[in-house]
Amino acid sequence: GSLMYASIFGNVSAIIQRLYSGTARYHTQMLRVREFIRFHQIPNPLRQRLEEYFQHAWSYTNGIDMNAVLKGFPECLQADICLHLNRSLLQHCKPFRGATKGCLRALAMKFKTTHAPPGDTLVHAGDLLTALYFISRGSIEILRGDVVVAILGKNDIFGEPLNLYARPGKSNGDVRALTYCDLHKIHRDDLLEVLDMYPEFSDHFWSSLEITFNLRDTNMIPGSPGSTELEGGFSRQRKRKLSFRRRTDKDTEQPGEVSALGPGRAGAGPSSRGRPGGPWGESPSSGPSSPESSEDEGPGRSSSPLRLVPFSSPRPPGEPPGGEPLMEDCEKSSDTCNPLSGAFSGVSNIFSFWGDSRGRQYQELPRCPAPTPSLLNIPLSSPGRRPRGDVESRLDALQRQLNRLETRLSADMATVLQLLQRQMTLVPPAYSAVTTPGPGPTSTSPLLPVSPLPTLTLDSLSQVSQFMACEELPPGAPELPQEGPTRRLSLPGQLGALTSQPLHRHGSDPGS
């Protein structure tokens, strides 16, 4: 009898404990919600809404976190579960008819179910419309201010047509639940991603989709105040780019002037030289400038040598048109050559190039014969006009050509200096018209024969001689050997007369 009593008592207590286990969990969670309300000092109306929603959600799901349970299964099984949970929507909604099984599984994985109690606001006026909503159960109302403009029910759709707008718009009203509602919502990016994977279904979906109420604000059109608020930074940046392009296009129409201050000032006329910023005076940081632009901040801005204009002085008759350009485009679109090309026009420029290279940067340069637009006047290309890779490749080509020119210049200078040193070592320090008596009659020769300089066969020296023939050397430049009979510069000019005159010897006659 005691054994029977113990078994009955144990079973009854276990049954009672299981009955009250759900209630215990409910009270535990309710205590957490109330502690949250007390800690954050939530006001009474919002506090009442929180408690009511918790009670309804507990009775609806029995305190089970559906998302946590669903995430515990593998992905393939999750797709089947989501397809079952959203079967009513996918079967009865017209846009989803005719979709393949794979497309429906992908869509079912992207849908999220939302449960809303009465009085809950789903979308506020001015919120971004980031999702498309399908009503599965219940009814909602749409308000503009305090005026109800629409009441939607089961199988209705609200949001915005995503295929017509590249960016999400703003809501033009509040969406509030009238009863307990079940909503299926899919985010904008998720829907577009699935439709991109199934393009054959995309056309059918957009053609058959009928949005019951379009929440997009109709005033959000390009150029409206609301649109400016939504895309303020983007609009200002776009206007700045367009104004920069218009100014650079105007600059290219004036090829007669070359400016070292950047493309923003290349198009300024002579009357605007004294102004601080020219056409860019209202925004000094709008356009890029070269490193020399920092010198323009000092006094005497109108007389600054940074602004270059072609000189009108005539060229000498024998002067060549100019050196070879550094870039391939210089032959086609440049009416002034790079300062480095002028360094190779003569030997005198070679000796004085490194010492006063900055001073020569603004000297007169030889002109190319074609009066085409200036290379320095070409505006900086924006990322939309020329690819970045093209600019980098041009810079690399320019750097390689500069290296080759520097190597060639160093070799030419070394060769010229070597020839000058050899000339100085071969010439005796001094010569006299009267020579010392020699031991015999073989001493009648006034000077030792001097062998002429070897013929220069280097390509670089031939180019130097060509430049010497075309360029007029300055007075202080050293002379180079030329073709024809060679003669030492330090010898007297009348050596031929010395050989014809008898030598005057000093000596005593033994017979006297």
Rank of each mutant, 00 (worst) to 15 (best):
D127V: 01
L128C: 08
L128I: 07
L129T: 02
L132I: 06
L132A: 01
Y133I: 03
Y133P: 01
F134S: 02
F134M: 03
I135E: 02
S136C: 04
S136W: 05
R137Y: 09
R137H: 06
S139F: 09
S139C: 10
I140S: 01
I140G: 01
E141G: 08
L143M: 09
R144H: 09
R144K: 13
G145H: 06
G145M: 08
G145E: 11
D146M: 03
D146I: 01
D146L: 03
V147K: 11
V148N: 03
A150L: 02
G153R: 07
N155D: 09
I157N: 06
I157Q: 01
I157S: 13
I157G: 02
G159S: 02
E160G: 03
P161N: 08
P161D: 06
P161G: 03
L162Q: 08
L164A: 09
P168S: 05
G169D: 01
G169V: 02
G169P: 01
N172I: 13
V175F: 02
A177P: 03
A177M: 04
A177C: 12
L178T: 08
L178W: 02
T179V: 04
D182H: 14
D182M: 15
H184D: 03
H184T: 06
K185T: 10
I186W: 01
I186H: 01
H187Q: 07
H187K: 09
D189C: 14
L191R: 02
L192S: 06
E193I: 04
L195S: 05
L195C: 08
M197R: 09
Y198H: 11
E200V: 03
F201Q: 05
F201K: 01
F201E: 14
S202K: 14
H204W: 07
F205L: 06
F205D: 01
S207W: 03
S208F: 05
S208N: 15
S208G: 10
E210P: 04
E210Q: 11
T212Q: 03
T212M: 05
F213Q: 03
N214M: 02
N214S: 06
N214P: 01
L215Y: 01
R216S: 11
N219V: 10
M220N: 11
M220S: 09
I221C: 10
I221N: 12
I221M: 04
P222D: 10
G223A: 09
P225D: 10
G226T: 11
G226E: 06
G226N: 11
T228G: 10
T228F: 10
T228Y: 11
E231K: 10
G232S: 09
G233W: 06
F234R: 11
S235H: 10
S235Y: 12
R236K: 06
R236T: 14
Q237F: 14
K239L: 12
L242R: 08
F244N: 12
F244S: 10
D249H: 12
D249M: 06
K250T: 08
T252R: 11
E253L: 09
E253M: 06
G256W: 04
G256Q: 06
G256P: 14
E257A: 08
E257V: 09
V258N: 13
V258R: 09
V258H: 13
S259P: 11
S259I: 08
L261M: 13
G262R: 11
G262M: 10
P263Y: 09
R265E: 13
A266V: 12
A268V: 12
A268F: 14
P270L: 11
P270Y: 07
S271W: 07
S272Q: 07
S272V: 11
P279D: 14
S285P: 14
S286F: 15
P288V: 10
S289K: 12
S290Q: 14
S290V: 11
S293I: 13
S293E: 11
S293D: 15
E295L: 15
E295Y: 03
D296W: 12
E297K: 05
G298A: 08
P299Y: 01
S303W: 13
S304Y: 15
P305C: 13
P305V: 13
L308H: 05
L308I: 04
S312C: 10
S313P: 15
P314I: 13
R315N: 10
P316Q: 09
P316E: 13
P317D: 11
P317M: 06
E319V: 13
E319S: 07
P320I: 06
G322M: 13
G323Q: 15
P325E: 13
P325D: 13
M327V: 13
E328G: 06
D329C: 07
E331V: 11
K332L: 12
S333K: 15
T336N: 04
C337K: 15
N338F: 15
L340W: 15
S341E: 13
S341Y: 11
F344M: 12
F344R: 05
F344W: 05
S345C: 06
G346I: 11
V347G: 09
N349R: 12
S352F: 01
F353H: 08
G355F: 04
R358K: 04
G359E: 09
R360S: 07
Q361H: 13
Q361P: 10
Q361M: 06
E364N: 15
L365S: 08
R367Y: 07
C368A: 08
C368T: 10
C368F: 06
P369L: 09
P369C: 12
P369Q: 10
A370S: 07
A370V: 08
P371I: 09
P371A: 10
P371W: 07
L375C: 15
L376S: 13
N377Y: 04
N377K: 13
I378Q: 13
I378A: 08
L380I: 13
S382P: 01
S382D: 15
P383E: 04
R385N: 15
R386H: 15
P387D: 14
P387F: 13
R388N: 04
V391T: 15
V391W: 15
V391I: 15
S393P: 11
S393I: 13
S393L: 15
R394H: 08
R394W: 09
L395N: 06
L395C: 03
D396H: 04
D396A: 10
D396N: 05
D396G: 08
D396S: 08
Q399V: 11
Q399L: 11
Q401M: 14
L402Y: 04
L402N: 06
N403K: 05
R404C: 12
L405M: 05
T407N: 03
T407F: 03
R408I: 08
L409T: 04
L409G: 04
S410V: 09
S410A: 09
D412I: 15
D412Y: 01
M413L: 13
T415A: 12
T415F: 04
L417E: 03
L419T: 10
L420Y: 13
L420T: 06
L420C: 07
Q421F: 04
R422I: 05
L426D: 03
L426P: 04
V427Y: 09
V427Q: 14
P429N: 14
P429V: 12
Y431T: 13
Y431G: 10
S432G: 11
S432E: 06
S432C: 14
A433I: 09
V434G: 11
V434S: 11
V434A: 12
V434M: 11
T435N: 10
P437S: 09
G438L: 06
G440Y: 12
P441M: 13
T442L: 06
S443A: 13
S443H: 10
T444L: 07
T444C: 10
S445D: 07
P446C: 06
P449M: 06
S451D: 09
S451R: 10
S451C: 09
P452R: 10
P452S: 10
P452H: 10
P452L: 08
D459I: 01
S460Q: 10
S460I: 09
S462P: 08
Q463T: 10
S465Y: 05
S465R: 07
Q466Y: 06
F467E: 08
M468W: 15
A469C: 14
C470N: 07
E472M: 11
E472C: 13
E472K: 05
E472H: 12
L473F: 13
L473D: 13
A477L: 10
A477F: 13
A477N: 04
L480T: 10
L480Q: 07
L480W: 04
P481L: 10
P481C: 10
L491M: 06
L491S: 09
L491W: 08
L491R: 12
P492I: 06
Q494I: 11
L495R: 10
T499P: 08
T499Q: 14
T499G: 07
Q501V: 09
L503H: 05
L503F: 01
R505H: 09
G507N: 11
G507W: 11
G507K: 07
S508F: 06
G511Y: 06
